[in-house]
Design a protein around this nucleic acid. Sequence first.
DNA 1: TGAAAATATCATATTATCATGATGAAGACA
DNA 2: TGTCTTCATCATGATAATATGATATTTTCA
Lengths: 137, 137
Amino acid sequence: MLSQTAEYALRAVLYVAEHGTDRLVQVTEMATALRIPRNYLSKTVHALVREGVLLSTRGKSGGFRLAVPADRLYVVQVVAPFGSLGEGRHCLLGRPQCSDRTACAAHAKWKLVADRVAEFFRGTTIAELLQGAAVPA
Amino acid sequence: MLSQTAEYALRAVLYVAEHGTDRLVQVTEMATALRIPRNYLSKTVHALVREGVLLSTRGKSGGFRLAVPADRLYVVQVVAPFGSLGEGRHCLLGRPQCSDRTACAAHAKWKLVADRVAEFFRGTTIAELLQGAAVPA
DNA sequence: TGAAAATATCATATTATCATGATGAAGACA
DNA sequence: TGTCTTCATCATGATAATATGATATTTTCA
């Protein structure tokens, strides 16, 4: 559903949202806790900085924190820069333009489901995900 | 949502279901009509033969036909051998075992959506997709 | 000012996916 | 029997995603 990288991004943001309320969270800490390759995660979270999702501080006692309150940060903002998911329309059969008018075979049935998925990404906040359950190690 | 290969497989099966009711459909014909690389499609549809979705006949005037009536052939059967989608459990955060009991952060909210997706793949037949709309070239 | 800690970045390696081209094998039919 | 057509398969290549290792840059603080 999500690319590996997008999944890393989401897990990292959830980690920051949970542990970074009163301090900065370091990449090494996240990488260890979430079992994600360190430098790869570094690149990934830096991309989130460029996207305005995270803020980074360099140098000693540096780290990351949310750039947006968790209850105003939507999953799509975290995930969209990587895998193309959560974004606009999405034809099951991969047709470039597949709308209600020029429908592909799968369109009518699939649309109902695809809309649900899109709603989830666009309408769910990081805060809501954290409420769902405690985050295990 | 689907891997390229899984999408090819689904489009090919839809094509066979539509055009193969009273004759065999050849790979070259499908590849041309659906604009899919010929040999790659050949490999893909052959995998569907092994899976019991299609039947193949070799030699002159050979080709493919459905191994199962379109109204008893479910999308998951076509798609599962390729991308891992449509299959059983699916945690948004990629945890190997993520159920209602050991829930990850995203689980509760995501489950509602993921169940819908799984239902679509498991509960929708090829025949239903064909009813959805005419298949353009 | 220098050392340490942390992010940022670059170069490269690895792996999986997608694709191509050539060849083998089976069946139909003259 | 031979040839043609078609599926089956093999070997290889191209590309993108994922990952690793080394280095540069910024900041803190003694």
